[in-house]
Computed example of a mutant assay.
Amino acid sequence: MFYWFLKWVAIGPLLRIVFRPHVEGAEHVPDDGAAILASNHLSYADWLFMPLTLTRRVTFVAKAEYFNSPGIKGWFQKKFFAGSGQVPIDRSGASAAEGALSAAKRILEQGDLFGIYPEGTRSHDGKLYRGKTGVARLALETRVPVIPVAVVGTDVVAPPGKKFGTFTRPVVRFGRPLDFSRYEGMENDRYILRSITDEIMYEIMRLSGQEYVDLYATRAKEESKRLDKEAAEATAQAKAKADAEAEDEQKKAS
Rank of each mutant, 00 (worst) to 15 (best):
F174R: 00
G131P: 12
A242L: 07
V157M: 13
Y129L: 10
V152S: 10
A238W: 04
A82C: 06
D189T: 11
F60E: 01
G33Y: 07
P170I: 01
S39C: 08
L54K: 05
A96Y: 05
T218M: 14
A26P: 01
D112I: 02
T55M: 07
P70R: 04
I192R: 04
H41P: 00
K105P: 01
Y66S: 01
F81K: 00
V18Y: 15
N40E: 03
G93I: 13
V144M: 09
F174C: 04
W4R: 12
F49E: 04
V135H: 03
T235F: 14
I192N: 01
K229P: 05
F5R: 09
A150C: 02
L42F: 09
R190K: 15
L54E: 00
K229V: 08
K132S: 03
F80D: 01
A236C: 01
G175D: 00
Y44R: 04
T59F: 06
V156F: 01
L193V: 05
P159Y: 06
P118T: 14
A246S: 12
D155K: 15
L207I: 08
E141V: 14
A97Q: 09
A232Y: 09
G99V: 09
V58R: 03
R143T: 08
D155G: 12
D32H: 14
T154Y: 10
E211L: 08
G74V: 02
R143Q: 15
F19H: 14
F5P: 00
L138M: 05
A10W: 07
K251V: 15
V144C: 10
G185T: 05
G134H: 02
F80S: 00
S195P: 00
N68E: 09
G93A: 13
P30I: 13
I196L: 13
T218Y: 14
L207C: 02
H28F: 02
R182C: 01
T55V: 02
E233S: 11
A38Q: 08
F164W: 14
L52I: 05
K79Q: 14
F49V: 06
L6G: 08
S181L: 09
A64N: 08
E249V: 04
G134A: 03
R176N: 02
S39K: 06
L207Q: 06
P30S: 12
A253N: 11
S92A: 14
E187V: 13
R173P: 03
A220K: 04
G74K: 01
G165V: 12
A104E: 06
G126I: 12
Y66C: 08
H28Q: 05
V23R: 03
G33P: 05
